[in-house]
Design a protein around this nucleic acid. Structure first.
Lengths: 327, 327
DNA sequence: TTGAAAGCGCTACCAA
DNA sequence: TTGGTAGCGCTTTCAA
């Protein structure tokens, strides 16, 4: 490993001058700069971030907390976050938390031990655990003073319900995600607003998790509970796909006998057959904007907008019937 | 941030003693240890990894290089790697490379700047770029002296072909992944061995990428090129699913008119309808074993086995027809 | 068994 | 405009 000392020696200047030249801080004569530059090139020198970080008490690392990287919604978020922080010179320390509060705490400790510059979190944990680290929350809407990026769940819920309402529903069941997840509640509220406005009856099927592994058995329970359901507003695309499969297995046609709308628009949703109608959340964008927001906080110390809400988009695909007026 | 100095002061000993007590290195009297422990507890002290890492010239971080985290095969690998390294006290620095050689180099530099302990890579880049960092390669079989974990692609290719052969194929097309990817070649060799042994004709459809975004248009081209195909050996599950969708769109029944077998067994493959028959690669296990292998290298300095090959499993699902003998 | 002190690579202060 | 130097928090000699 080449150090600043060796560069200084080769350039015939002091380490202080090299440091100044490298960081464009303080006075460096044109001549000295030239000498440093060529020494840096010759030795293929790049500064050790660990030493920097020790002195600054702040590294170029950002901690990323994810609930479950195997859930196909989160890799996209991660990609957005990564692109965003990279552009500003930061890298990511990965923390896949698995809905485990202990694991989350462990990671926050590790983050602190590594002089992390900030945290981007998409998990539901306790904000207080974040201590004094700068942070941005993704896909969570809790208290009002938070720095966060999320999409418009209430409107999304309304759009999903409207898509169903306008397609001749007979028996509507809303599949609701875990109660603790704020976005589930907002979506449900949006669903209900629309259904009530149209004076339509509906049932609620509460799920306790978004976990991939539970989707199939949940779908079975779902149809056991509501065998005659004809219109499903699913909690997310993973569960919607499981419901679709279960419906087809039970010999029900989609969308003729059962129509389904999901939530998220995962990459796979459009590759289903029939294609899954859904509310598209801009997952990559959520991550990307979250990254930018955090970087702004870190660099400027303040931000104009601290809560970013992104729009959702209705994606009509073949898993829902044709609209009433189209018929 | 609490430092070792404050702990020393509170405990009434020197920082050297605190350090020794924390690391169980050198002599520490029982009495001193007690005092240190209670001071640590009282101050809620935890050591700064950055300072440690600066002195040791080696951090507790491991760099993870992935080709594309949005490809559903890799989050599972990442999860395995993460669990594996966590158990040994390491954390992950994420490097999503996007099949971009420059980006890979950038990440390796960042890894070096952060005194990374080692690298786990699932990308196809140049090994020499890894310089002197200890590394483990996943899912790659290149030269013989490498540290690597991969699954048995040749056998997997044979299994896929056998599954088709025993199911009354009429017109077989093998969809082959990118030429540069060693595992594609091995799978193809396995396919061909079996087909030749059975003296069956087949066509080869070469793809240039594993990229998710290209799957749908590739599937279209596939059917344009081979409109009468009745048995498809796909390069992976993503492309198999795209082929399934395209077949259904064209009014061909699965598996009666077209039968398909994939490769990987992504979580979604079993949630398709019909379920996608495939060769299951133990993605999580590949990551986990890779992590263990690297940790062994780092801690012991040597390993008994440096190349780990994991078995693959044939998963028969409804996307292939019934076996000849079953009829 | 202990503590003083050097040093990991870098930045920033201060004096020249 | 420059260089000497202290110090970031920790580990590890080495002498006591």
């Amino acid at each position: 490993m080449t150090t600043i000392k060796e560069v200084a020696k080769l350039a015939g200047v002091s380490v202080a001058t090299v440091s100044r030249a490298l960081n464009n801080s303080g006075y460096v004569s044109e001549e000295a700069r030239k000498k440093v530059e060529s020494a840096v090139k010759e030795l293929n020198f790049y500064p050790n971030e660990v030493a920097r970080s020790l002195y600054q008490k702040k590294s170029k690392l950002i901690g990323l907390l994810l609930p479950d990287i195997a859930n196909p919604f989160f890799p996209l978020i991660a990609k957005g976050v990564e692109d965003g922080v990279n552009q500003r010179g930061y890298s990511l320390l990965l923390g896949n938390v698995e809905d485990d509060l202990e694991k989350e705490k462990d990671y926050l400790k590790i983050f602190a031990q590594n002089n992390i510059a900030g945290v981007i979190s998409a998990v539901q944990g306790d904000i207080k655990d974040l201590q004094n680290m700068p942070f941005v929350l993704l896909d969570r809407v809790e208290s009002d003073q938070n720095f966060s990026v999320h999409s418009d769940d209430y409107t999304g819920g309304m759009m999903a319900a409207e898509a169903i309402v306008s397609r001749d529903p007979k028996e509507i069941v809303i599949m609701v995600g875990p109660k603790e997840v704020p976005s589930s509640a907002a979506r449900l509220a949006g669903n209900q607003k629309v259904l009530k406005d149209h004076q339509l009856d509906y049932q609620i099927f509460q799920t306790s998790s978004f976990k991939f592994e539970l989707a199939e058995q949940t779908a079975e329970q779902f149809f056991d509970t509501y065998p005659n359901v004809d219109s499903v507003i699913a909690s997310n695309d993973v569960y919607a796909i499981a419901v679709m499969k279960e419906a087809l297995k039970r010999g029900r046609r989609i969308p003729e006998d059962v129509q389904i709308i999901g939530y998220d628009d995962m990459p796979f949703s459009r590759m289903m057959y029939p294609g899954l109608a859904t509310i598209a959340q801009p997952a990559y964008e959520i991550g990307y904007r979250g990254a930018k927001l955090l970087c702004d906080i870190l660099e400027k110390g303040f931000v104009e907008v601290s809560r970013i809400q992104l729009p959702v988009i209705l994606k009509i695909r073949e898993s829902v019937r044709k609209k009433d007026e189209d018929e």
